[in-house]
Simulated scan of single mutants.
Amino acid sequence: MPEVTSITGDALRELLNQLVGKTAWRSRAGSGTGSIFTLQFGSELLGDKTQGEFSLMVYCAWRIVKGNQILLSWHDDSDAALVPGLAILHEVQVVGIELSRWNDFAIRFANGLELQIINDLSLLRDFDSSWFIIHKGAVHYSVTPNNLILVESAI
């Protein structure tokens, strides 16, 4: 049975800093998913060519910006805009990350794009996670709408 513990923002930031230098690839979005999407980073996992060293899944509000311009956001149509729009992050290297005290998460890319993920803080949310990242297919780091950071790993 998996063990679930909580960690600090500093511990999550330490993990997320490992994204720097990794390349994004294989986003998934579209019909039936609304604004939810996944994005892979780093090398493919052995035995699973669909998942990277880091696998990000976003349920909350988000946007892709360049400078002061919003290029794409969670409000856009999932089939017509999100699928091709997320592909602009493919094969682009991460050059920086930022994690706020509210667990908003920004990923800066070498081409000047930035993926901004906004943790929709609310104790009234009816789902477990605003966003999560899986490391090496084994450890699941989840940011909750009430601003907890949970870690689940198989034992």
Results as ranks from 00 to 15, higher is better:
Gly47Phe: 14
Phe41Gln: 02
Asp48His: 10
Gly30Asn: 03
Val20Phe: 12
Ser43Lys: 10
Thr50Ile: 13
Trp25Val: 01
Gln51Glu: 12
Phe54Pro: 03
Thr23Ile: 11
Leu46Cys: 04
Ser43Val: 00
Lys49Arg: 14
Lys49Tyr: 15
Arg26Leu: 09
Gly34Leu: 06
Gln51Pro: 04
Phe41Lys: 01
Thr23Val: 15
Val20Asp: 02
Ser55Leu: 11
Glu44Ser: 13
Leu46Tyr: 09
Leu56Gly: 02
Glu44Lys: 14
Phe37Lys: 00
Gly47Ile: 08
Gly52Ile: 01
Thr38Gly: 08
Thr33Lys: 11
Leu15Tyr: 14
Gln51Val: 10
Thr50Gly: 07
Gly32Asp: 11
Phe54Cys: 03
Asp48Trp: 02
Gly30His: 13
Gln18Ala: 07
Thr23Phe: 11
Leu16Arg: 07
Lys49Gln: 11
Ser55Pro: 00
Ser31Ile: 05
Arg26Ile: 10
Gly34Lys: 03
Leu39Pro: 07
Glu53Arg: 12
Ser55Ala: 15
Gly42Ala: 08
Leu16Ala: 13
Gly52Pro: 00
Phe41Trp: 12
Leu45Arg: 15
Arg28Val: 03
Glu53Ile: 00
Gly52Asp: 06
Glu44Asn: 12
Ala24Cys: 04
Ile36Asn: 03
Phe54Ala: 05
Thr33Val: 03
Gln18His: 11
Ser35Glu: 05
Phe54Ile: 07
Gly47Glu: 04
Leu46Thr: 05
Val20Trp: 13
Gly21Thr: 03
Leu46Ala: 13
Ser27His: 14
Ser43Cys: 01
Arg26Met: 04
Phe41Arg: 04
Ala24Pro: 07
Thr38Cys: 03
Thr50Val: 09
Leu19Met: 05
Gly47Ser: 07
Thr33Phe: 08
Gln51Leu: 13
Thr50Gln: 11
Ser55Arg: 10
Val20Ala: 07
Gly42Trp: 05
Leu19Ser: 04
Gly32Thr: 14
Lys49Gly: 05
Leu15Cys: 06
Leu45Trp: 11
Leu16Glu: 06
Gln40Glu: 01
Asn17Arg: 14
Leu56Cys: 01
Gly32Met: 04
Glu44His: 15
Leu56Tyr: 11
Trp25Tyr: 00
Ile36Gly: 01
Arg26Thr: 01
Ser43Ile: 02
Asn17Asp: 15
Trp25Leu: 00
Arg26Cys: 02
Asn17Thr: 09
Gln18Trp: 12
Ser31Pro: 07
Gly34Asn: 01
Leu19Arg: 13
Leu19Lys: 14
Leu45Gln: 08
Gly47His: 13
Gln40Met: 06
Glu44Arg: 15
Ser27Cys: 12
Asn17Pro: 01
Glu53His: 14
Arg26Lys: 07
Glu53Ser: 10
Gly32Phe: 12
Arg26Trp: 04
Phe37Glu: 01
Gly42Thr: 00
Leu46Pro: 07
Ala24Gly: 05
Lys49Asn: 09
Lys49Glu: 15
Gly32Val: 13
Leu16Gly: 09
Gln51Trp: 14
Leu45Asn: 10
Gln51Gly: 02
Gly34His: 11
Leu19Gln: 09
Gln18Leu: 13
Gly32Lys: 09
Arg26His: 04
Ser55Trp: 13
Gln40Ile: 05
Ser27Phe: 15
Ser27Asp: 10
Gly21Lys: 06
Thr38Leu: 06
Leu16Ser: 01
Gln18Asn: 15
Arg26Phe: 12
Gly52Glu: 08
Phe54Val: 02
